[in-house]
């Protein structure tokens, strides 16, 4: 029993289709994702790239248990996801910090929800703040932090509760290049330390290749499906800045970009049409 659970993939989507009713309640409904199936093995780092509006966030919401798919199902470590997926941590694309809590209290929130006393939760949150480079910013409120700082608070907030699988929706897109590479390396270190599973969504193909074991390519919507899967056999541990110079990286980039470019153009044209 226990062995079977250990062998089960961290995340498994089976024929997931998500259809949204049209905003006015009548008219045509909109199918964002059509029959998406993929697995993320325990300890694997998988990136999903795709044009804007292709349903990346939608798939992550299904994996998190926040959205019930119209068809198909999601499994996490062998358990069907019904309601909030308790094994998952989710770093949202949009602002998700509680504006009435200080940075420190935001980081500590997950522990508090798990019954840890406020004082202890704060104490344990402190090292996480410095890990994301925000030592001394603990008493600031979200509106007093920059967009990039808020993302880093959100990262610490997600990781402190030690989720088995981390869902990240464009976590670093708001950061400048230097901070971004720093955070990417930090995330890789954290990931290497205890091999959590990661589903990482990004617009940035280079970032996807530099970080992942596998890159999935999503077609343009409506009804987007997975159209490509690339194994990234670059050596680990990696430095995200250095690895971009290697010939293998460039070859992979060229190969995936050839496919992605067409979808991005299609997606852009469709967004304009709608």
């Amino acid at each position: 029993m226990a062995e079977a659970a250990a062998a089960a993939p961290a995340l498994q989507l089976e024929g997931v289709t998500c259809t949204f009713p049209s905003p006015d309640g009548r008219g045509r409904s909109y199918t964002a994702v059509q029959g998406a199936s993929f697995t993320v093995a325990d300890g694997e780092f998988v990136s999903i790239v795709g044009p804007t509006g292709s349903g990346k966030s939608t798939m992550l919401n299904v994996a998190a248990g926040l959205l019930k798919p119209s068809e198909g199902r999601a499994l996490s470590f062998g358990q069907p996801v019904t309601g909030i997926n308790p094994k998952a941590g989710y770093m949202f694309q949009a602002e998700a910090l509680m504006p009435w809590k200080s940075a420190l209290d935001n980081v500590a929130a997950g522990l508090e929800f798990r019954g840890v006393s406020k004082a202890e939760a704060r104490e344990r949150a402190l090292p996480w703040l410095s890990r994301v480079g925000l030592e001394g910013f603990g008493d600031r409120f979200p509106h007093q932090l920059s967009g990039g700082m808020r993302k880093r608070v959100a990262l610490a907030q997600t990781l402190i509760v030690d989720p088995k699988i981390i869902l990240m929706d464009e976590p670093f897109s708001a950061l400048d290049v230097q901070t971004r590479q720093m955070m990417e390396n930090e995330l890789l270190d954290l990931w290497a330390a205890d091999r959590k599973s990661v589903v990482f969504i990004t617009h940035d193909l280079e970032e996807a290749i530099a970080m992942s074991d596998r890159v999935l390519v999503l077609s343009a919507g409506p009804g987007s499906r997975l159209i490509g899967e690339y194994r990234i056999d670059l050596d680990r541990p990696r430095d995200v800045a250095e690895i971009r110079m290697t010939p293998q990286f460039l070859a992979l980039h060229q190969e995936i970009w050839a496919q992605l470019r067409d979808e991005v153009l299609k997606g852009y044209a469709q967004t304009k049409l709608r």
């Binding site: 998190a64 926040l66 909030i84 308790p86 998952a88 941590g89 989710y90 949202f92 949009a94 602002e95 998700a96 910090l97 509680m98 504006p99 929130a109 997950g110 929800f113 798990r114 959100a154 907030q157 997600t158 509760v161």
Partner: peptide
């Protein structure tokens, strides 16, 4: 209440 803030709190384990 922002639905994202709410979803985030729920993901963090809020009852």
């Amino acid at each position: 209440v922002s639905p994202v803030v709410l979803a985030n709190a729920r993901m963090l384990g809020a009852s």
